[in-house]
Design a protein around this nucleic acid. Structure first.
Length: 556
RNA sequence: GCGCCCGUAGCUCAACAGGACAGAGCAACGGACUUCUAAUCCGUAGGUUGUGGGUUCGAUUCCCGCCGGGCGCGCCA
């Protein structure tokens, strides 16, 4: 497991507090340790003295001073512990310690960044789960990128992760889909019929109808109604799902499980869960329908489980679905939904409580809409949001890497303005290339070294030469911080923290590269040390990009 | 009307979960390739953090009101 710099420091401070009879495990002093923003404040800082000052009713500065004296002997890894500002305590790592950590990074290599905050907890991430009634659009792409990256990050952070796609292959919209396909089918055969009211009018159904005609011929219309409906329905779902899978594959998003809603009905799980809720006494009948008392857990109104016509609602099968997840042994499940579903959250949480599941079993994330811009102007393809632009066309236009990075670089719960023109530009305005370029540059340095048959001291030995300047040290500090970022993004479920980090790391490297010559055969120790730093930076860039599902180019 | 999200430089966004002087990129301007990839770097300029209160040693961050934008409020999924 990788070393967590902040966590270790925090623990030591907590220990010091305990020895003072303060702080304690009860956490009455909830202090932070964080990397400093400015170099002159050292590497890390804590606000513990401010919080303690309140408790002790002493000036923060004085508390900080006392604490510093107490801490110093405990912190053999620190070169300096200083009181600054109104009462901050700043820490500066010993170079020797930093170098020792770098050694570990070399050893851990592709495993660097693995942390054990997940402790093997089984967690499921369910995302995209688009109804198989039409192709994926750009908004789904954002959900896909987020869910996929989150799953990768959680795995790196020590969770046992499974990715799942829930196929809504039951219910009215699927009936409508089948009817829409049949209408297109008949149209091709020259019949004067229209797509049913509220049906699916997209061109893709015309293509599918043609395919069906080619495969099965016009005689399918002669089948008995029930059989015919089933055929059209299933054919449409199958074809559309295949297209969705293809799009997701190309977007480098893969699922462990494709779960069918229909199977819940077939196995009687919907009925079972309904009876379970009835037994618990959380349901009642009114207006001929069966209701769940979701208001018991804060929902605005109670919700219908079985309609007056006897058909279960989507809500009912969704409850069964989540019960099924629980029965499969997940300790925690994450649902990622589009913004138009946010009104659905309270009832879902209420249902979990009604089933008696732990409060933190279900986590729901809402992914806000994407607005596509083209040169600063909103995309015209839709009168509403750009999200109706197919994901496919975005991938074709800007590529997978740029698309994924743009989706991931922001908090998914905020609206995203995605400028297609900017994403396409292979230049400095494009953050994904900025990061990838750093990697390609490093590879190129090694390529050059090899070409010139340059000999250098092996990395682990070369690290012994130590830092020559602040620029080198800055990179080292950024490198050893990576595991903390993995931990943070996993616990906060925020892949974008990783993007910010990557951008910073790449920036430190680019600055360094422009300021200092690496391949300097006049000074072999220095060159060797710098090559070691390059390799280390390369390791982190690669590991981090992989967590985002973005390719790691050897040259650009 | 109610609920959720959002409001920071001309534009798109950060600010590490309440911390030090609010930072990047783009756009603008000025510099750096006979030397490891210039998709890069260095510098200049750009701000009453929508607004009014409150809590705090400290607020872009938390609370309340208002203004503006987005989304949702079905026995649809």
């Amino acid at each position: 497991m990788s070393y967590l710099v902040l966590e270790s420091l925090r623990e030591k401070i907590a220990q010091a507090l305990l020895s003072l009879g303060l702080g304690s495990s009860s956490g009455q002093v909830d202090f932070v340790v964080e990397p400093t923003r400015e170099k002159r404040h050292g590497d890390f800082a804590t606000n513990v003295a401010f919080l303690l000052a309140r408790l002790l009713k002493r000036p923060p500065r004085e508390v900080a001073q006392n604490l510093k004296e107490l801490l110093e002997p405990l912190l053999s890894d620190m070169a300096r512990v200083e009181v600054a500002g109104g009462g901050f305590i700043n820490f500066t790592l010993k170079d020797a310690f930093l170098l020792e950590l770098l050694q570990r990074v070399l050893e851990e290599d592709e495993r660097f960044g693995e942390v054990d905050v997940g402790k093997g907890v089984r967690i499921q991430v369910e995302f995209v789960s688009v109804n198989p009634t039409g192709p994926l659009h750009v908004g789904h792409g954002k959900c896909a990128a987020f869910g996929d990256a989150l799953a990768r990050i959680l795995a790196k952070a020590g969770f046992a992760v499974e990715k799942e796609y829930y196929i809504n292959d039951a219910g009215k919209q699927i009936e409508l889909l089948g009817a829409s396909l049949e209408a297109r089918f008949r149209q091709i055969l020259g019949e004067d019929v229209d797509v049913p009211e509220g049906g699916y009018r997209g061109e893709y159904l015309v293509d599918i109808a043609r395919e069906l005609l080619r495969e099965r011929g016009a005689e399918v219309l002669g089948l008995p109604e029930e059989e015919r409906n089933k055929l059209f329905r299933e054919y449409a779902v199958e074809k559309i799902l295949a297209q969705i899978r293809k799009d997701l594959d190309d977007f480098r998003v893969f699922f462990d499980v494709w779960f069918s809603e229909r199977s819940l009905y077939e196995k009687g799980e919907v009925d079972y869960v309904l009876s379970l809720l009835q037994e618990k006494g959380y349901t009642y009948e009114q207006d001929g329908a069966l209701w769940l008392k979701t208001t018991l857990w804060g929902d605005d109104k109670d919700r219908v489980l079985i309609r007056e016509n006897g058909a279960p609602t989507y809500f009912a099968s969704d409850i069964a679905y989540h019960w099924n997840k629980w029965k499969r042994g997940f300790e925690r499940v994450i649902d990622i939904w589009g913004a138009d579903h946010h009104g659905y959250i309270p009832r879902m949480h209420a249902a979990m409580r009604a089933l008696g599941l732990p409060e933190d079993f279900l986590e729901i994330f809402i992914v806000q809409f994407v607005t596509l811009l083209r040169g600063g102007q909103p995309e015209r393809m839709s009168t509403r949001q750009g999200e109706f632009v197919p994901l496919r066309s975005l991938i074709d236009e800007v590529g997978v890497d740029a698309a994924r990075y743009y989706f991931l670089m922001r908090d998914p719960e905020t609206h995203l303005e995605f400028d297609v023109e900017e994403a396409k530009r292979q230049s400095m305005d494009n953050p994904v290339y900025y990061v990838q370029y750093a990697h390609a540059r490093i590879v190129s340095v090694f390529r050059e070294a090899q070409k010139r048959a340059i000999q250098w001291v092996p990395f682990h030995e070369a690290l012994g030469f130590g830092f020559e300047n602040e620029d080198e040290r800055d990179i080292a500090r950024a490198i050893v911080y990576f595991p903390e970022v993995v931990k943070q993004s996993a616990l906060l479920r925020q892949p974008y923290l990783l993007c910010n980090y990557l951008h910073d790391l790449a920036g430190s490297f680019h600055s360094f590269y422009n300021l200092h010559r690496i391949l300097d055969t006049e000074n072999v120790p220095r060159m060797s040390f710098r090559l070691a730093l390059c390799r280390l930076t390369q390791i982190v860039l690669r590991n981090a990009l992989e967590l985002l599902g973005i390719s790691v180019p050897e040259s650009m």
